[in-house]
Simulated assay, not measured.
Amino acid sequence: MNYQTIIQQAQHQQEPLKADRFVKISDRKDECDIPTDAWKPLLENSYLQTWKGIVLPKGITEMALYPMLLYELQPKTIIEIGAFNGGGAIWLADCLDVFGIEGRVHSVDIDLSLLDEKAKADSRINFIQGDCNNISAAFPSELLCALPHPWLIIEDAHINLAGILEYFHASGLRSGDYLIVEDTNKVHWGLWQDSWDDRDEMEQGANKMDDLRDWLKNHEDEYMIDTYYQDMYGYNGSKNWNSILKRV
């Protein structure tokens, strides 16, 4: 094995201007190289995964991909739509610290009662109680105007996806910012359908990839899929199909 060659290939793949790295949604299929049977063991114990003793239900591939993207992007602002217990927000803030990035995490949820006490006490995170069906109230334009770029927006609430995307598109996303829509993998919604309590959220979640594709059809020249991260573990080898997006 030629390790120098491996290093050179990795550096070439990461080139921001690499011609085939960024592609339109019309060039992509809603499918995944990871076999369907593999998703059950990958997902069923995801809520046993912890960070600093706090539940961190990120996909195993996302745990590897996010730090690389954060280091490349160097975001000044991370907006997390869907706080859950705050574990993800703490993990993101810790990643920023590790990389020496001066940024802040803003995390919104309709119910902040689930927040871990460690999350509540973390001054690096601005937790906002708000309804994704009224996202402009949670993130008013005057707040967004004050948030420094680059931005990384992570949608992980499974409610009003098109409305959320359109709001941030019209109210602040700039060239170079990133947008990730979590859980667009159609397979895993089928695995969760019998255990998800909120049936409306379940229904909207199961349609996320279709809703994202419909929205992107009107913004094909503005948001490109970053295939370096999207396909690192095989074509759409992630819980997030065709949804690691860069505004161009």
Rank of each mutant, 00 (worst) to 15 (best):
M1P: 05
Q14V: 06
S26N: 08
P35A: 12
K40A: 15
K40E: 13
L42F: 08
E44C: 12
Q49L: 11
W51M: 04
G53D: 11
P57Y: 12
P57I: 07
E62D: 15
L69F: 11
E72H: 12
I79C: 05
F84A: 07
G87P: 08
G87M: 08
I90V: 12
L96V: 05
L96Q: 04
D97Y: 08
V98Y: 12
F99D: 07
G100K: 07
V108S: 10
D111K: 09
L112I: 05
E117C: 08
N126Y: 08
F127P: 05
I128D: 03
Q129R: 10
D131E: 06
C132G: 15
N133S: 09
N134Q: 15
I135W: 00
L143H: 09
L144R: 14
A162R: 13
G172V: 00
G176A: 06
G176S: 07
L179Q: 02
I180R: 08
I180P: 06
K186H: 10
D197V: 13
D200W: 11
E201R: 15
D210E: 12
D211L: 00
W215N: 00
H219Q: 03
Y223N: 02
Y223P: 01
M224K: 12
I225S: 01
I225K: 02
D226E: 10
M232L: 15
Y235L: 07
G237H: 08
I244R: 04
V248L: 08
V248E: 10
